[in-house]
Design a protein around this nucleic acid. Structure first.
Lengths: 270, 270
DNA sequence: GCAAAAGTGTTCTATGTACACCCATGT
DNA sequence: ACATGGGTGTACATAGAACACTTTTGC
């Protein structure tokens, strides 16, 4: 019986009193989170090193079992914070969280039949304290009961080099699915802005596209296309500090209110 | 313990012998299927009328609980066949099945905490026997144990007219999500061809776009765009039978091998 | 002055749209 | 003959790619 449900009639109450949920076999429900960010010019994914049995020592996505009265999104945020210290809530300046898909192949987890609802998060690479916190490192205070001891970002290109089979469970192919989703979403949504803190320059935005897609883009045309897409970015009216090796300071922008890009930003053909 | 898992080491065997899956609360896992087709020029969804308690008498998506050793896709096909008679397997001439997303809000099902993995199917409207069978009507032979007594297609526009709240559980908003997914997918994939049997004419294909998007398209330009998109359709080399009210017989085509359309087929702006 | 990054102008080409017109069939 | 749906030709408008060039900073 579901404690979160409020009966609406006497008939409902009668039915629920005689209902046995144990009539169905138990299936475990977990959430996992693929956190992507841009580090050192490359797309990177946040992984945890497992300490307990299934795939002990292997790197895996942060995640865990859903509580019986807990919403799926909330479970994803909770497990992510518990295992890595990364908090997506708060003022939420830029972090994006969406459901990727659900993986349920029998035999994917040795403990029991488990289906995993996997979320995709896109976050800025913030080394400073703020609403987004760097993942906890070994030795920092953590609440007990978790499977993970250490968390770090891995460049997705390096993962392909070691072979996707190096990740625990089916997490290698899940990361591949997530990367492809992110690449596709940059084409028709303004989600590239979720990879950077505000305010940002158009050069930073362009380097995000270049890192995620693995291409180089023509800077002048990129600028024109972004500015001519309604609702993509809004000018702040200030200029950035100049960088090290010179270069003209860039104008600063923040996210616009568009959720879809018209026209779309298509990847250059092969 | 998961019976579908084959241990790979003695250490694994030892761990599994001492593992208690009942340490976690039970959460029910169901699959539901949104079957869309084009009927009488309108986008339609397949619903079943519930006979047993939760939302008895209301129309709902076909679906049900996943067996403990059953893959999610297989469960979706099984529940669909059991409750409606519609079989997606076989030669599979054209039917498309993909995961839509997973719905898990606590309180969405009065029986217990249930998360539903929802699938989206696009099928041709085939009134004749074949690999795709019309949904079973009241009184036809069905295996016992199912919740559904009757199945029929509803025009999605009519559902909006009666209010989305008329559907059982949260199925009204699920159908809305599925329709939006279908509309978007027609833009960048050749999935419109899944709504028709082969071979088809370009006029039939155009009317599918018009029905799903609710617009009217310029026939000559539609033709040129389809034929200039590599891998979308392949000419069969024959012509259709002429229709009732006259009109030149059309050339026949079948699906090409493309999975993505380059360039994309964008909806006309509002 | 030179390098580096930002930003503007202009040209050329590809793509999308609109309109006119021809073709093959039923009534 | 006319209506109906299929199919082709062509011109116009807009969007994208390429290239040259100017601006503002650090060294």
């Amino acid at each position: 019986v579901n404690p979160a449900y409020v009966p609406e009639s006497a008939e409902e109450r009668r039915f629920l009193a005689s209902y046995d949920p144990r009539a169905y076999d138990a299936i475990g429900v977990t959430v996992d989170v693929v956190v992507l960010t841009i580090r050192a010019g490359g797309l990177s994914v946040l992984l945890v090193n497992r300490t307990s049995f299934p795939h002990r020592g292997a790197w895996a996505l942060p995640g865990g079992f859903v509580a019986v009265d807990e919403d799926l999104d909330a479970a994803a945020k909770r497990e992510l914070a518990e295992e890595t210290g990364l908090k997506l809530d708060g003022t939420g300046a830029g972090a994006h969280l969406e459901q990727l898909r659900t993986y349920g192949r029998p035999g994917r987890d040795p403990r029991m039949r488990v289906i995993s609802v996997v979320y995709l998060a896109l976050v800025p690479d913030l080394p400073t304290p703020g609403t987004l916190v760097r993942p906890a490192l070994r030795g920092s205070a953590r609440s007990g009961g978790s499977d993970a001891s250490d968390a770090r970002f891995w460049a997705v290109d390096d993962l392909a080099g070691e072979g996707a089979g190096a990740l625990a469970f089916d997490h290698g192919s899940i990361v591949a699915d997530a990367v492809e989703r992110a690449r596709a979403k940059l084409e028709y949504t303004p989600l590239a802005t979720s990879f950077t803190a505000e305010p940002f320059t158009l050069g930073e935005l362009r380097r995000i596209y270049e890192a995620v897609w693995g291409v180089s883009l023509h800077a002048p045309n990129f600028r024109r296309k972004v500015l001519s897409t309604p609702g993509f970015v809004l000018p702040v009216g200030e200029r950035s500090e100049p960088g090290d090796g010179g270069g003209r300071p860039a104008e600063l922008y923040r996210r616009g209110d568009a959720t879809l890009l018209h026209p779309a930003f298509l990847r250059p053909p092969a």
